[in-house]
Amino acid sequence: MLAQDFDYQPTLRGSTLRLKPLAQKDFDGMYQAAGDPGIWVGHPAKDRYKREVFETYFASLLKTKKALAVIEIDTGKIVGGSSYYTPPDLPDSIAIGFTFLVREKWGGNTNRELKRLMVEHAFKTHDIVYFHIAPSNIRSQKATMKLGATHLYDAELNLSTAPMQWKCYGLTKAQWGVSQSNI
């Protein structure tokens, strides 16, 4: 499969999570998951828990046609979201970001399963997956390094509405293989 044939909105299934293309009908479930102010403490958009702010964010995610709803299989509830995107400084590459999970899913296997599903899908067409994380989001930086990713560089990039500083991480297939063998 060629990189230009990459499916940005696949339906993926793991042992506890199902990822599906984000749709307008997912707004209520996504907002219910995102409505906790504690989720956004480390993010640049600290007020994303407010309905009017989240509405704008949700609309922008829908417009990309690259966003996924993260659904807990046992309950059928949306527990977060994530996206694939093309890094502006690496136009032939793939990145994963704009990820959030309800706090009940922090510190366990949920983020690892979510990223496993997305990373393995990305590796069908790409040899490296990128992650861009705000310098203040230490929790996400640590979680990304647990996947096997390494910090590559810092850059000012426009990933959404305005340029800002990002810590740029990369995860190769080889690094992923090592991190999976250490589980």
Rank of each mutant, 00 (worst) to 15 (best):
Y8S: 05
T11A: 12
L12M: 12
S15Y: 01
S15C: 09
T16A: 06
L17N: 10
R18P: 00
L19A: 05
A23I: 07
K25E: 09
D26Y: 08
D28I: 14
G29W: 14
G29I: 05
Y31N: 00
A33E: 06
A34P: 03
P37T: 06
W40T: 09
V41E: 15
A45D: 08
A45P: 07
A45I: 12
D47E: 02
R48Y: 09
K50G: 03
K50P: 00
E52R: 15
E52N: 14
V53K: 10
Y57Q: 11
F58W: 00
A59Q: 14
L61E: 14
K63P: 01
T64F: 03
K65I: 02
K65S: 15
K66C: 10
L68A: 11
A69M: 11
E72P: 02
I73K: 10
D74M: 12
T75F: 00
V79S: 00
G80T: 01
G80Y: 13
S82H: 08
Y85E: 01
D92P: 00
I96T: 09
F98V: 00
F100K: 04
K105V: 00
G107S: 05
T110Q: 04
R112M: 01
R112S: 11
E113P: 12
E113Q: 11
E113V: 07
L114I: 02
M118S: 09
H121E: 07
A122I: 11
F123A: 12
D127F: 04
I128F: 00
V129K: 10
V129W: 09
F131Q: 08
I133H: 08
P135F: 07
N137T: 01
I138K: 05
R139P: 01
Q141R: 10
T144C: 05
T150G: 07
L157H: 05
L157W: 05
M164I: 03
C168K: 04
C168I: 03
L171T: 05
A174W: 02
S179M: 10
S179H: 14
S179V: 03
S179F: 03
N182P: 01
